[in-house]
Design a protein around this nucleic acid. Structure first.
Length: 204
DNA sequence: TGGCAGATTTTA
DNA sequence: AAAATCTGCCAA
C-alpha cells in the first residue's frame, strides 16, 4: 500500500492546487488541506509530506489573528491574493508558514502546523540538523525548517517559490476540530484541524 | 522527564 | 514587554 517517492512527486507535479483554490476562506481551506501533499523545490529536488494539522486565522474580528488590531507592514501580506505565502519570524527563532486564503480585502490565512514526512526525507533531515522522522515537521517552526521555508518567500505566490500542494488527498483519517494552541488571545476558538491520533500532529 | 532561558523581530 | 516556537541545559 506504500506509494513510492517517485510516484508521489510525479502525481503532485501533474495535479497541484491553483491559487484560486484558496479563495474560499481560511476555515474551509484549513479543513480541506488535511491529507494533501505539500512539496517544496530545493535545487530541483522536491521534498515534503502530508498535511496533518492546520489552523485558520481570519479577519479583523479574530483576536488571535495578526490582523486583529489593524493592518501593519508585517500582516499586510494577509491582504494579498489567495495562494500568497505569508512567512514571519516567531519568537525570534522559528519561521511560520501560512497560505493566504482571504477574498479581496479580508486578511485571512491558514497556518500549516505539522506534516507526515513522505518525500525527500534526507533533505528535510539535513535542514533540520538531523533529527528523527517523528520530529521532522511536528509543529509549525519545525515544518517550515524541514521544507526550507525562508522569509525571502514572504509575499510571493506559492508557485513562484516552488511550493506545490496536491490536488488529490494522499491520506484520509478522521478529522478533529479543536481549539487553537500556542496563542494567548483567541486560543479557545475551534479553528484547529488535525488528523485524530496521527503521531505527527503537534501537541502544543 | 520536566522546567527554564535564550534566540530576535514586530507590534503595542 | 509580549508574542501563532523550539532547543539545549540543568536537575533529580
Amino acid at each position: 500500500m506504500n506509494i513510492s517517492e517517485t510516484e508521489i512527486i510525479s502525481k503532485v507535479k501533474t495535479a497541484f492546487l491553483s491559487p484560486d483554490y484558496f479563495s474560499r476562506g481560511a476555515e474551509e481551506s484549513a479543513l480541506n488541506l488535511l491529507g494533501r501533499m505539500i512539496l517544496t523545490d530545493e535545487g530541483g529536488k522536491l521534498s515534503g509530506g502530508i498535511i496533518v494539522e492546520t489552523e485558520a486565522y481570519g479577519g479583523f474580528d479574530d483576536p488571535g489573528s495578526h490582523a486583529y488590531s489593524g493592518i501593519t507592514p508585517r500582516n499586510s501580506v494577509m491582504l494579498g491574493p489567495p495562494g500568497t505565502v505569508y512567512v514571519y519570524l516567531c519568537y525570534g527563532a522559528s519561521n511560520m508558514l501560512n497560505i493566504v486564503t482571504g477574498r479581496k480585502g479580508r486578511p485571512e490565512a491558514v497556518l500549516l502546523r505539522a506534516l507526515q514526512p513522505a518525500a525527500g526525507i534526507e533533505a528535510m533531515t539535513a535542514r533540520r540538523g538531523g533529527c528523527r522522522e517523528q520530529l521532522l515537521a511536528k509543529g509549525p517552526g519545525r515544518l517550515a525548517q524541514a521544507l526550507g521555508i525562508t522569509r525571502a518567500m514572504n509575499g510571493l505566490p506559492m508557485g513562484s517559490c516552488g511550493i506545490m500542494i496536491s490536488r488529490s488527498r494522499f491520506l484520509r483519517q478522521p478529522v478533529s476540530r479543536t481549539g487553537r494552541i500556542g496563542i494567548k488571545k483567541g486560543e479557545g476558538l475551534p479553528l484547529r484541524f488535525i488528523f485524530d491520533g496521527n503521531k505527527y500532529v503537534s501537541k502544543g
